[in-house]
């Protein structure tokens, strides 16, 4: 339960008000690349099963577009929950991407803004 408390504290969001309507998953433009749907992530958070979420890719795939939050009938900022989950990983110094795997060719062309935001979200 400790991790669930942490998610709640650092995100400032109370997931217990979610009634599992599924609108977040339906609105998520990146759902196709996630293993757990946003709705499932919220359910597992309600149950305190954070470790289960941490082994999924969902919160890494979330690109912070706020579509889920814009439509959530319970006004839960799900985007913030995803950020809290990323932070739990990053605060354990567990990076999601390794810069070594990004080729020099790619780095030549990529806009700095893409690299900046990527590293902010996926590396400690």
């Amino acid at each position: 339960m400790e991790l669930a408390e942490k998610v709640k504290n650092i995100s400032g969001e109370n997931v217990l008000s979610c009634y599992q309507c599924g609108l977040c998953s339906g609105s998520c433009p990146l759902r196709f690349a996630m293993d757990l749907s946003p709705t499932q992530v919220i359910r597992l958070t309600q149950l305190g099963l954070i470790e289960k979420i941490l082994s999924s890719n969902t919160f890494w795939i979330c690109s912070t577009c706020f579509s889920c939050f814009a439509r959530c009938p319970r006004e839960i900022n799900i985007t913030k929950i995803m950020e809290a989950l990323r932070q739990i990983k990053l605060r354990r110094d567990q990076d999601y991407i390794d810069l070594k795997n990004v080729s020099k060719e790619e780095l030549k062309k990529i806009p700095p803004i893409a690299l900046i935001s990527n590293l902010r979200k996926t590396t400690a």
């Binding site: 780095l107 030549k108 062309k109 990529i110 900046i116 590293l119 590396t123």
Partner: peptide, 15 residues
């Protein structure tokens, strides 16, 4: 001396 040359060798500056 391209715009991205420093990022290419030191991508961590983006952090």
């Amino acid at each position: 001396p391209s715009v991205n040359v420093l990022l290419e060798y030191y991508p961590e500056i983006a952090k």
